[in-house]
């Protein structure tokens, strides 16, 4: 893992070309984490992948997490790996929930259409099935083809729209499922156990 000074060096070099990209760095449990602003995502990932001396060419994992009630609410994690130096670096893109306007002109738009129209630069915004606005981020499928299924999974569970993904639709849940299950305010579901004998006999 790049150690703490190495991580600060990386931050410094990114800040030279893209000021304002890196929001925070942290180094705990021997893991280096770069928290970045999602609008600079592709630039940072390209630099980390291609710059000589960095060359984090393998994306181990792409996953999202919901930090409710902290703001910004979502974060998409990119686990990068450099196989020659055997170093891992995690890039964390912090996404907030966009402020949802009341109603929504695109009520009932399917997410695929929304992301297709949003492919051209972020407006009109991606909307969920009820017209509420969904958080958006650029897709890194061009840089790392392994992200294809993993971004679909993040969309499926959190409702995060990846702009530029070739085929953004649900992957693990049924196609017509409503809701983003992995969000923290979605209930776990299931059925409560019914203790009928106890209730009948013991009140």
């Amino acid at each position: 893992m790049p150690d703490a000074p190495g991580l600060e060096l990386i931050r410094g070099q990114i800040e030279l070309d893209h000021p304002g990209a890196v929001i925070d760095t942290s180094f705990d449990h021997e893991r280096a984490v770069l928290a970045i602003d999602p609008s600079h995502l592709l630039a940072v990932l390209t630099w980390l992948r291609d710059a000589p001396g960095q060359e984090y060419g393998f994306l181990s994992s792409l996953h999202a997490a919901d930090y409710l009630p902290a703001e910004p609410r979502f974060a998409v994690h990119y686990e990068l790996l450099n196989r020659d130096r055997v170093e891992r670096l995690r890039v964390k893109a912090l996404l907030g929930e966009p402020a949802s306007p009341a109603g929504g002109a695109a009520g009932g738009t399917a997410p695929e259409e929304a992301s297709a129209t949003a492919g051209g630069g972020g407006s009109p915004a991606a909307r969920g099935p009820a017209g509420q606005r969904l958080p958006e981020i650029d897709s890194c499928v061009e840089l790392f083809p392994t992200a294809e299924f993993q971004e679909r999974e993040a969309f499926d569970f959190f409702g995060i729209v990846f702009r530029g993904h070739p085929d953004l639709r649900r992957i693990l849940l049924p196609e017509d499922y409503v809701g983003w299950p992995q969000r923290r305010d979605f209930p776990v579901g299931g059925e409560p156990v019914t203790f009928t004998y106890n209730e009948r006999n013991y009140g």
Binding site: G128, P129, A130, G131, Q132, G179, W180, D185, P187
Partner: peptide, 18 residues
């Protein structure tokens, strides 16, 4: 569903517009 689960389901339905 009872109690907290019922409210969570209602809220989820509102959020997703089901």
């Amino acid at each position: 569903p009872r109690g907290g689960d019922l409210e969570a389901y209602e809220r989820a339905r509102e959020l997703t517009g089901a």
